[in-house]
Amino acid sequence: MFKFIFFAVLAYFLGSIPTGVIIGKKMKGIDIREHGSKNSGATNAYRVLGARYGVMVLAADAAKGFFPVMFADLAGIEGTLLILVGLITIMGHSLSIFLKFKGGKGVATSLGVFLYLVPQIMLVTIGVFVIVAYFSKYVSLASVTCAALLPILTLIMPIRESLIRVELFIMTFLIGAFVIYRHRTNISRLMNGNENKFKFK
């Protein structure tokens, strides 16, 4: 249990690192929370900072999700506890201690977590995300679609033997619901027809 507590704390603090804010200040001298959608995540970083730094934020946020789970797995944590480490990492990103318990919407960090836990499922999800985002030009719509799809895929696609399917479904359902909730203003704008379209640079 001590080992799990150590990795849970590590996961939260790594997840809490506000990469979008840090890169914006270091590279452009601006706080992205004061521009665009005022979100600290990768999509707003892309809009405000440009493609180069937006991709850097995306990669960093995904890495925040991937590596804590990988380290915990290598240390022998598995099953329910490994899933909880992933969940805590995502919560760290969205409820960062460095941003007064505010943060991004959790999409990129969830990407990293599930790329490690269920890579096959995540590759399908990424494919759906790219298709929806490309043809609709709405990243928010793609994010919400994938958040709803992910729990369904955990029920029908292969997963690693060390994971318990029902627990993985519960985790992905909770994360999906959380991501959709974090996109509630985007959903409202989509329904009203005034959501900002994403411009691929």
Rank of each mutant, 00 (worst) to 15 (best):
A11I: 10
Y12P: 03
F13H: 04
I17F: 05
T19G: 09
G20A: 07
G20R: 05
I22W: 09
K25V: 05
R33S: 01
E34P: 00
G36K: 02
S37Y: 00
S37F: 00
K38H: 02
A42M: 13
A45C: 06
G50M: 09
A62E: 08
K64D: 12
G65T: 08
F66N: 13
F66P: 06
P68L: 12
D73Q: 10
A75R: 08
L82V: 03
G86R: 07
G86A: 11
I88E: 02
T89L: 09
S94H: 00
L95R: 03
I97G: 04
K100Y: 06
K100R: 13
G103F: 00
G104N: 04
K105T: 01
G106F: 00
G106D: 02
V107I: 14
S110G: 15
G112P: 12
V113R: 10
F114P: 04
F114G: 06
L117V: 09
Q120P: 01
I121D: 10
M122G: 12
L123C: 10
L123K: 06
V124E: 04
V124N: 04
G127L: 04
G127Y: 14
F129M: 13
A133V: 15
A133E: 10
S136F: 11
S136K: 12
S136T: 15
S136V: 11
Y138E: 09
Y138I: 08
V139R: 08
V139D: 06
L141S: 12
S143P: 08
V144E: 08
C146F: 15
C146W: 13
